[in-house]
């Protein structure tokens, strides 16, 4: 066995894992934020990622915009849809239980997905045709798109960090996540903070969805398929903990890709599931510790 080749192959797989991990992280951040504040697992989050990807498609194909302009547009549009979803559905269920909200989000997931199918059709789509040549460093291949995904995710995570720690609304979001009752007693307008939480979570999801579309292809079920790894990442990182969500995403992404060296790639999602169950059974607060 040639060890040099093996190491290169191994590192190559790690790179793929990081790329996938970035995409998963962007979804997991939103799931974690929403859980932290509204205390329910948002099953429509994957489909929000799909929606973001398709809004991106409108920007790229119909409006012929450059990628850097497509992002804010798609993220903003997805945020508006999330806010509308909250206003029209979730808001009326706030006084019910988290489990009822969860079931309602499963319904919302189906509505989003079928809306995507109605508007854009069920077939696979891509942002742009053609193959870009990868850069090669010491035998490791990395495509420009993949570099962009990693860089873009890093920028978004830093921006989110600044938002949460430097702005009034960001701090209020963290306060709500800590203790909703105390926030209310303090006079914070919790409904407004919740509104912003949806917008931010959806914007992150949209970016993740576009990256997923760049990395693979767009189809209406892409978001539902990635929902399991996204939840697994949020749980592995400690639900309600943002940096945990990023770490969890990278962990799930890397382990999923590494698993393809051992088992059939068809079973990749099973790996996310296995990590999630192990975490839930042995360390339910996640790597970095989160909310119970």
């Amino acid at each position: 066995m040639d060890w040099g080749c093996f190491v290169i192959e191994f590192l190559q797989v790690i790179i793929y894992g990081i790329v996938l991990g970035c995409i998963i992280s962007l979804g997991a951040i939103g799931v974690s934020l929403i859980f932290g504040i509204l205390r329910f697992a948002h099953f429509a989050h994957g489909d929000m990622m799909s929606l973001g990807a398709y809004f991106g498609l409108v920007g790229v194909v119909s409006l012929q915009l450059p990628m850097y302009a497509v992002f804010p547009l798609a993220m903003g549009a997805t945020a508006l849809v999330a806010a509308a979803l909250d206003r029209s559905i979730y808001r009326w269920l706030r006084s019910s239980t988290p489990i009822i909200m969860l079931i309602s989000s499963v319904g919302a997931a189906l509505m989003l997905r079928s809306a995507i199918q109605v508007v854009w059709g069920p077939d696979n789509k891509i942002y742009e045709a053609g193959i870009k040549l990868p850069y090669i460093f010491y035998g490791l291949r990395i495509k420009p798109d993949q570099l962009n995904i990693i860089f873009g995710t890093a920028v978004l995570v830093v921006l989110l960090h600044l938002f949460l720690h430097k702005t009034r609304m960001g701090k209020a979001m963290r306060a709500l996540s800590d203790n909703m009752d105390l926030a209310q007693v303090t006079g914070i307008n919790t409904e407004r903070v919740i509104f912003w939480t949806w917008m931010i979570a959806a914007a992150m999801a949209a970016a993740g969805g576009i990256f997923l579309g760049i990395d693979t292809r767009l189809n209406p079920i892409m978001g539902w398929r990635i929902l399991l790894p996204v939840f697994a990442a949020a749980i592995a990182g400690g639900i309600g903990n943002l940096y945990g969500a990023v770490l969890g995403g990278l962990l799930i992404g890397i382990v999923q890709e590494l698993s393809t060296m051992v088992i059939s790639p068809a079973y990749k999602p099973a790996v996310a599931f296995a990590i999630m169950v192990l975490m839930l059974v042995f360390r339910p607060t996640g790597i970095l510790g989160g909310k119970e």
């Binding site: 009034r168 701090k171 209020a172 963290r174 306060a175 800590d178 914070i188």
Partner: peptide, 16 residues
């Protein structure tokens, strides 16, 4: 608010 700093806790008090 346990995960907020002391300063941020006070800021939250003045939120409105």
């Amino acid at each position: 608010f346990p995960s907020l700093t002391v300063h941020e806790n006070l800021e939250m008090g003045a939120f409105i």
